[in-house]
Write a protein that binds this DNA or RNA. Structure first.
Lengths: 368, 368
DNA sequence: CTGAAAGCGCTAACAC
DNA sequence: GTGTTAGCGCTTTCAG
């Protein structure tokens, strides 16, 4: 293990003071061509790289942005982080990544760690903006931050879409196809304000369009096997013709489980997702969903935080410019797909009207 | 912007020296119950959190692990990073994440940044182990590191599967179904040693099983729209009955493009992927592929690096223990799927035998 | 049991 | 132009 080579080593080898080395290598101040050469040579020779920690200590800035997401397993977050990463790297910052595992306590822990690491800014998705201790800690210290996926609160701007409106839009889509009895499928409903917002928007939508009150189908992640729980849940709610899942991952899993229950999608059951992950286009049937741009969302959040950083740096105390637009609302749109179609019409005595099926059997004759 | 609260502030408020504060808060040394209380109260009151950078400067350790992957857009890397993240966080370290964008120069740049940040260890996937300057820099400094997905080289252990053998297995699978004329579809072939290894394994496999030499179908990512390029490539190679794509993402895209060309998968063309991403199970037809556990791969890599860290710390100079096993070979297996089936047999004059369409016609009567 | 002080790598004032 | 030095936040001797 080679011991690290410091500015002193370079200075010694170049036969000059450390300040000169700093000046040459940073291009600050003026130096004679001669010493300049010597320093450059020495540095090159020793493979010298400035230690950011020494520099940070002195400048009280780390050029590091912290990021907290629940998990990278859901591509929606991976995409967002990718967006952040690109933007941050482009501007010469680095990314300190942490995961909260959908857990409020862990969220607070990792926040503390990021703060200890003196990150210059933080981009995060919290479980619940209303109760997050992480946000309190960040606010206390006045660290520039931006939320993602969450709704904007108090001092924190947020990059994301209007969950309520988008969910409302889903209700419209289901209504347009003639659905009446629907359900909202949520994972970890209690601990996700995003999920709750979507439910509320959907609920409101169903109401507006004269549909039945949507049934809330909750699954707690830690309570067991997802497939199994889904299976049971779907089996228990055979009366629904349409389900709105709070995210695409869940929607795709639901399609699979519905199939395994012998319920054809969309003939027997329509399913709509949320997020618009790429895979949704490729599954069969393709997933009807709300399409969002997570990458862009991360990018916007990063850009916002980074902008505040340079801003703070410039006008130190007198921050008159940029009145901090709170919500970075990104566009979304409803993407239609094979998983959403009109429900089979049943007569009151339970007999169904003829409908067409997609593949071979032109008319499934169903009688009870 | 509140100025940061330092150990001095706490000392002042508690009416004692900074050393005492350090001792109390770190639980080192002994202190009277009285001052102890005062310090604790003061710290709590001020919301004090130790600055890691001061601490790092003094200990020349950052409790940070650097990670470099080409991109997070491919779920295989996102999964691996998730695995690293979990393991690292569990052991009280933090993750500094960087992306190389499949670019050797960028790879070197971000490596330099991680080194400047004084990461204690590095986990990375490089474009080409043979030519990577990043590896040189890391080696020069003796930073504990572990490769992922790449093959183990010189001083670097690697966490991953045996690409050659796995690709060989794919040839076997195609052969078993009766394929003869096959192609290997690669994205950025030149800059990926993983891709090349897979090709070689496949090539060797084809040879062993008496199949025709596989055609190499290359796509350079920067040269335009992936769909379009794929489309053209597939159109130009109508003679092939089976294609082995160097990763699942590519395979899924290929299925889509094949379909849009009117070539049914698997009736007209079989496609096999590599990686085993979750989505592969859900697409239609389901993807035959080599299944790997990226999460585990990241986890193993992290564990390895972390182990070296504590090891180095313990036995400083005398590192007799752990003879550094080089390759952390993880298991893989071939997953069959709907995208792989026997090819349609054509008569020599180019006329096709009657075949079945996927859904309704039960028995494909194949005659030559 | 506790405080003073050195020193980690670096930058920026300040002398020369 | 260039060297010396203080000091960023912390831990760790070393005295007291």
């Amino acid at each position: 293990m080679k011991s690290k080579v410091t500015i002193k080593d370079v200075a010694q080898k170049a036969g000059c003071g450390v300040a000169t080395v700093s000046r040459v290598l940073n291009g600050t101040g003026s130096t004679s061509e001669k010493t300049r050469k010597k320093v450059l040579a020495a540095a090159e020779d020793l493979g010298f790289v400035f230690s950011d920690i020494g520099r940070s200590l002195q400048s009280s800035t780390t050029r590091t942005i912290g990021c907290i997401v629940p998990s990278l397993a859901n591509p929606i977050f991976a995409d967002a982080v990718q967006g952040i990463q690109e933007e941050v790297q482009k501007q010469g910052y680095q990314l300190l990544l942490a995961c909260s595992k959908y857990d409020a306590e862990e969220e607070q822990n990792v926040t503390r760690l990021l703060i200890a690491k003196q990150v210059d800014g933080i981009i995060l998705t919290v479980n619940d903006t209303g109760t997050s201790k992480a946000l309190d800690m960040i606010r206390d210290r006045g660290i520039p931050a931006c939320l993602m996926f969450n709704r904007s609160v108090s001092d924190f701007p947020a990059s994301g879409i209007d969950n309520f409106a988008a969910a409302h839009r889903v209700a419209q889509a289901l209504h347009a196809e003639g659905h009446h009895h629907t359900g909202f499928l949520a994972l970890n409903f209690q601990s996700s304000d995003r999920s709750r917002e979507r439910f509320m928007g959907f609920q409101k939508g169903c109401q507006s369009f004269g549909m039945a009150e949507p049934v809330l189908l909750q699954i707690e992640e830690q309570s067991g096997d997802l497939s199994l729980l889904l299976h049971e849940l779907l089996a228990a709610h055979g009366g629904l013709t349409g389900i709105f899942a709070s995210n695409d991952f869940l929607a795709i899993a639901a399609i699979r489980e519905a199939k395994s229950l012998g319920r054809q999608v969309p003939q027997h059951l329509s399913i709509v997702g949320f997020d618009g992950i790429e895979i949704g286009r490729m599954v069969d049937p393709s997933l009807a969903t709300i399409e969002t741009n997570a990458r862009q969302m991360g990018c916007m959040a990063a850009r916002h935080v980074l902008a505040r950083l340079v801003n703070d740096a410039k006008s130190d105390t007198l921050k008159l410019i940029e009145p901090d637009q709170k919500a970075l609302r990104l566009p979304y749109h409803f993407r239609s797909g094979g998983s959403l179609a009109p429900p089979e019409v049943k007569t009151t005595d339970g007999e169904e009207a003829a409908t067409s099926s997609p593949s071979c059997h032109p008319t499934p004759s169903i009688s009870s």
